[in-house]
Amino acid sequence: MSTTATRPMAVRAQASRDTGTREKPSFLSTGILILGALYCLFPVFWVLAAASKDGTELFSTFTLAPSTHLWDNIVELTAYRDGLFWRWMLNTALYAGIGAVVSTWVSALSGYVLAKFDFPGKNGIFKVLLMGVLVPGVILAIPQYLMLAQAGLTNTYWSVLLPQIISPYGIYLARIYAAASVPGDVIEAARTEGAREMYIFNRIATPMMLPGLVTIFLFQFVAIWNNFMLPYIMLGDDHLFPITVGLNGLLNQGASAPALYTLVLAGALLSIIPLVIMFLFLQRYWRVDLAAGAVKA
C-alpha cells in the first residue's frame, strides 16, 4: 500500500513472472492480507483442537491446545443413536448434491432458451425472473410449508429438495453464459442438419456452457447446504435432517446435557472437512467464472 509503488508497463502478473521483473514486495499489504487469512482460519484451527478434547478438558485446558481424544469423540459420535450423525451427512450430500444437479440443469435449459430464442413474452419472463432474484427466499418457506402440508409432502425428502430447484439467480447466470459461449451460427447449422432442439441443447450447447454450469452448480450446492430455515421448518423426523439442523438440535440438547458438546464439536469438524476439500479442488471455477457473471451483472 506504499505510495511509491508502480504498475508494470503493459502486461500484468503473468508476463512479469516470466521475465523475472517482480516488484518489491510490500510488507504492509502482505501483512494485512495474512492477518485476514489468520482471522478466517482461526475457528477452523480452534475446532481441530477442541474436537480432540474430552468434556472436562473443553472448559479447563487452554483453548488452542490439542488433546488426545479426537478418535474417542468420533467413535462416540458414530455410536450416538446408531450412527444418526452419518445419516445426517448422507442426507446433506443428497439434498445439496441432487438438488444442485437438477437445479443446474433447469437453470441451464431456461437460461439457454432465454438467451438464444426469440419468442413473444421473452422479456416479460426475464423481468419477472429478475424480480425473483430479489425475493427474499426464506420468506417463501412458511407458505411453502403450508402448501406442501396440504399435499402431504412435509417431513419427506421431497419437501427439502423440490423448493430449492428453482433458482432465478442460476437462470440469470445461465443466460449470461449461454449468450457468451454458444454461437448462434452453431445452433443454426445444427437445425439445418435436422437436429432436434433438445439434442442441440444437450449435446452442443451444454458442453459449451460447462465451465459456467460448474459455477452455477457450486452456487446452488452452497445455497442448499447453507439453507437452514427450510429443512428446519419442513422436517420433524430427525432421520431426514441435514447436518445443519441435526447439529443445531444436538447443541440445543447440549444446553441441558453438556456431555453432548464434545459430540457437537466433533460433528462440526467432520462436517466441514468434505466441503473444504471440495472448495480447494474446485477453487479455480470460482475465480474464472464469477468474472463472467459478476462483472457483467
Binding site: 445443519t244 439442523v245 462440526a268
Partner: peptide
C-alpha cells in the same frame, strides 16, 4: 469460510 454453513 464461505464453505462453512451459518449454523456451523
Amino acid at each position: 469460510p464461505y464453505a462453512v454453513p451459518a449454523v456451523i
